[in-house]
Computed example of a mutant assay.
Amino acid sequence: MGSNGNLPFMPSRFEHRATFAAPADDVFLTLVDEAFLIARLRDIGGKGAALLDHRIEGDNAAYRLRQGVDASKLPGAVKSILNGDLVVEREERWHGLETAGKATINGVPAHITSRGRLTGRGSGTELVISAEVKVGIPLIGGKIEKVVAEQVTKLLAAEAEYAEKWLAERA
């Protein structure tokens, strides 16, 4: 039972796939590169986007970033529970070609967790990310989860497209 006496909250799950023409090691080095992350945030990170922390040690990398969405661009279900802009803080930890991530959303009892893997496919690479969104708000939490999952999927697609372009320009 959930804390409110109802059935437990069931998170929304989704999967995102992206392909790159470059080898997996090159994709990894791009995705964790500080200059790449700063440029990506500047170009598609939204309002108040910033790289908050960045570390690389061998084939391990960790970074934390902030992204924002202007309140005027938010769906009604999200606007109804948020005062102002949507601010997401994301953390990614890479261990070789595998990643684990988490994100929180300001002012909302919500979190996103993810796991991903880069896999060589011929001369290219496939990135598969499995994620889960959980919003702990009775009655409307599930609706908000679906909106968040949809928006995160669009963001991941835009980030993959940005990475593919970055890689092609530097090949």
Rank of each mutant, 00 (worst) to 15 (best):
K143G: 11
V87W: 10
E150R: 07
P8F: 08
R117D: 05
L29D: 07
V148Y: 01
K146R: 14
V69T: 13
T19Q: 06
T30Q: 02
R55K: 13
P75E: 04
A131N: 01
R17K: 14
F20S: 00
T113N: 07
T113D: 12
Y63W: 08
G46T: 05
K47R: 14
H54Y: 13
A110R: 01
A62F: 10
I129T: 09
K146F: 00
R121E: 15
E57C: 03
G136M: 14
R42A: 14
T153A: 15
W166E: 00
E145G: 11
A24V: 08
N83A: 13
T113K: 06
E34C: 08
R170C: 06
V88E: 11
L31E: 02
T113H: 08
K73G: 15
R115C: 04
A24I: 09
L156C: 01
T99R: 11
L86N: 01
E91Y: 12
K143E: 02
P138E: 11
K143Q: 12
R170D: 07
G48M: 03
R40V: 01
L155S: 10
F28V: 10
A149V: 02
D33K: 11
R93C: 09
A131G: 12
A158K: 09
I137Y: 10
M10H: 12
W166H: 06
T19N: 14
L155R: 01
G2F: 06
K134A: 14
P109L: 09
L52K: 10
F14L: 09
A77G: 01
G96F: 04
K165G: 15
L127T: 00
L37Q: 14
E91C: 05
A50W: 08
G107C: 02
V32Y: 02
R64C: 11
G142F: 05
I105E: 00
G68H: 03
R13I: 10
G136A: 15
V128D: 00
G107F: 07
V78L: 15
A158G: 01
L155V: 04
T19R: 13
D70V: 08
L52Y: 13
I129A: 02
R93K: 14
G48Q: 08
L37T: 12
V152H: 05
I112R: 03
V135I: 13
E132Q: 13
D33P: 01
A171N: 12
I137D: 00
K73I: 11
R42L: 06
N6P: 00
G5E: 10
F36L: 04
F28L: 12
G2R: 12
A168E: 12
E161Y: 08
A110N: 04
R117Y: 03
V69R: 03
N6S: 14
N6C: 07
R90S: 15
P23M: 04
D53Q: 13
G48W: 08
A49M: 10
L86D: 05
V133Y: 02
L31C: 11
A110T: 06
A110Q: 02
D53P: 06
E98S: 10
A61R: 01
A49P: 11
A50F: 00
T125Y: 04
T19K: 07
